[in-house]
Amino acid sequence: MAIATEPRTSAPELVLELQNVHTYYGRIRALQGVSLEVRKGEIVTLIGANGAGKTTILKTISGLLHAREGQVRFQGADITQRAAHDLVKLGIGHAPEGRRIFSRLTVYENLQMGAFTRTRAEAQEDVERMYSLFPRLRERSRQQGGSLSGGEQQMLAVARALMSRPSVLLLDEPSLGLAPILIQEVFSIIQEINTRGTTVLLVEQNALQALNIAQRGYVLQTGRVIKADTADRLAADPDVRRAYLGEI
């Protein structure tokens, strides 16, 4: 099972590494010793049922939550206790679950806020980059975020997270609540972002599609990693197919 995670000398450098991470909500233990790694240039996906701990893992990485036990390492440095606003500057971008766009700020302002840690000139340049990646957002740039459709809000949330020019992008269910055609679009944009050089850690309910674009995946169950393998092998795994791809 550990084939894919075994470090090889030829493998690209480790970007993210979780070692035996335990994260709590008060007294509720949501993560019970999670270990995983993400290498430069990869798309890695986390799949698992509702409440398995996927969101918690992303929050623990981006500093919205802190591990009580274990270690989170980013480009070799221990970031377990670092605050979220520091981690953005280091290069971790997080598009949290549920879009959470700033509903009464315009699309343009939402993007600007994403570049909060950078200079105005850099931000301006990147707004243009986002508009070319998401042409729909350019058309709606003066519209208030809350008046966008669900799919457009999702694109805005992803674009906003990209505005900090993260080297790693954490995406929490970017396809949630979208029509199939839009899901396709979101997934191809994720691939596009990845080919442009951003490493992606992707949480998805659409396990099959996520495995389709990912190189590797982790399967979670009640706060633990129960399987780790290449995306192809996971997609072919009978257990995974039964549990997460809706096959009998």
């Binding site: 953005v88 959470r100 806020m113 909060f116 840690t117 906003r160």
Partner: peptide
């Protein structure tokens, strides 16, 4: 929380 994820104090 979203603002915090974008690097704001």
């Amino acid at each position: 929380e979203a603002a915090s994820a974008l690097g704001m104090t």
